[in-house]
């Protein structure tokens, strides 16, 4: 599945910007509209655009199946661990990092960390699902 030259060039051009936007959303999620899930979806879209325009076989060489799986596992694990660490400070999911003035980037405690974890998990899971589906389609 390869689309025309125009589409391939455009998606190659857009994808890095989408990744930047996703990174902005996941880091600033606790201050501005956005957050982990949206950031993850945009992160996945940047890869999915490349898959639809360049074909699964080409994209697989840059974003490996096993790497995507590892990122998903690590981010999911870090979410549960981050929540469990709170038990030592006062409760499950307890926000144990304090400090920072109101409205500053580091004022959210563990919330930005959760946003990053959720974003990576969602992005990797969506990419993984798309890999599974396009592997099915391109097999024949």
């Amino acid at each position: 599945m390869r689309m025309s030259l125009v589409v391939r060039t455009t998606t190659k051009f857009i994808s890095p910007f989408l990744v930047t936007y996703a990174a902005y959303l996941m880091v600033y999620g606790h201050l501005s509209p956005g957050g982990g899930f949206q950031a993850g979806v945009i992160l996945a879209v940047s890869v999915i655009l490349l898959i639809t325009s360049h074909g699964y076989k080409r994209v697989k060489k840059s974003f490996r199946f096993r790497e995507v799986q590892t990122i998903e596992g690590i981010s999911a694990l870090s979410l549960v661990l981050l929540a469990t660490v709170g038990v030592f400070f006062g409760g499950f999911f307890y926000n144990f990092i304090r400090g920072g003035s109101f409205g500053a980037l580091v004022s959210g405690g563990i919330v930005p960390l959760f946003n990053i974890g959720v974003a990576l998990k969602v992005g990797a899971a969506f990419t993984f699902m798309f890999y599974m589906l396009s592997r099915w389609v391109e097999r024949d």
Binding site: R66, E67, Q69, T70, E72, G73, I74, A76, L77, V80, L81, T84
Partner: peptide, 11 residues
């Protein structure tokens, strides 16, 4: 936690 650990142990 263990479910995700198993998931991570595969790759």
């Amino acid at each position: 936690l263990t479910a995700f650990l198993i998931y991570l142990a595969l790759p």
